[in-house]
Design a binder for these strands. Sequence first.
DNA 1: TAATGTTATGTTATAATATTACATCTCCAG
DNA 2: CTGGAGATGTAATATTATAACATAACATTA
Lengths: 164, 164
Amino acid sequence: MTRTDPEALAFAQHDHGACAADALDYARGVCEQQGLRLTPVRERVLQLLLESHNALGAYDLLEKLKADGLGSQPPVAYRALEFLVAHGFAHKIERLNAFVACSRTHSGHSPAFMICRQCHQVAEAHATLASGKLGQAAKSIGFKIEKTVIEAEGLCPACQGSGA
Amino acid sequence: MTRTDPEALAFAQHDHGACAADALDYARGVCEQQGLRLTPVRERVLQLLLESHNALGAYDLLEKLKADGLGSQPPVAYRALEFLVAHGFAHKIERLNAFVACSRTHSGHSPAFMICRQCHQVAEAHATLASGKLGQAAKSIGFKIEKTVIEAEGLCPACQGSGA
DNA sequence: TAATGTTATGTTATAATATTACATCTCCAG
DNA sequence: CTGGAGATGTAATATTATAACATAACATTA
Ligand SMILES: [Zn+2]
Ligand SMILES: [Zn+2]
Ligand SMILES: [Zn+2]
Ligand SMILES: [Zn+2]
């Protein structure tokens, strides 16, 4: 339940076992508090997402669920993802049509992502779009922003070193 | 070839006939200058995108191409779109898996979009992500941004009025 | 002009992503 | 218990996208 909240964790050296365990504990705690049901399928999908900082497609997850004896048809994966995304435990990366576990503790945050095109890791940062250039443009013309997709693609520090 | 460059044109009242005609002329000029081939299929797809400020899916376009006797299989549409996107005459809206014509004159710009969830119009603005919060985070951790996806979803001014 | 290489198009097939619809099961409130 | 709500299982299908290969159009130059 008590998690640190660094920017771009995925590209920093860190104890990922603890990183994943903390995130899972945090999700369990939030669900308990809010009366949400972190069912076996949902929890397993979150665990799978937490295994790395890479984005996983619904069908990648589905294969692993199947291996666990937990449903093998697309809706099983999509429904679990829908729950996780709706409650902020995971995010969809639109650029990749794939999903990552959330690495933050705030609920109701608007995340931004850095996607490494080489190692495919995805780091999450917090974006305050409303304050940026687009936010200003939106305000000035009267567009009411409800949700944002902010994804940067490029090379992570490690991959820049290794002859990219 | 000489186009004005307002922010969020789609949500402002404007002479859309001229808007589309100018964009097409502009694309023709750029192609001539740069030795790019704006072939019939490519030009037709651009025209179709320019007919409105709504995003069109590849299969929407394909139907219209078929009606024109211009190829009816997915690769025809996807290849034309690939050309248009590569040269900055169109953009993909990742959130919608659909495409819009570019409404700007700069080449090499990094666009941002406002998508109205009600009327489905898409307005383009110019985003300088590198200068915003995410840009700072990227710089501080050494992530090298090559491309950005910035899309805001919400309600345009007109749709806020009409009981949304 | 004819030969050649290159780019664009046409076409078939298939992959990858996502949703609809409906039957069944589980859990809890009453 | 029993009814209702939410979650899961499953089949079928829709939507988006690409791979692979054949042909056509166009340019260069012999
Ligand atoms: Zn980690
Ligand atoms: Zn990387
Ligand atoms: Zn217009
Ligand atoms: Zn609108």
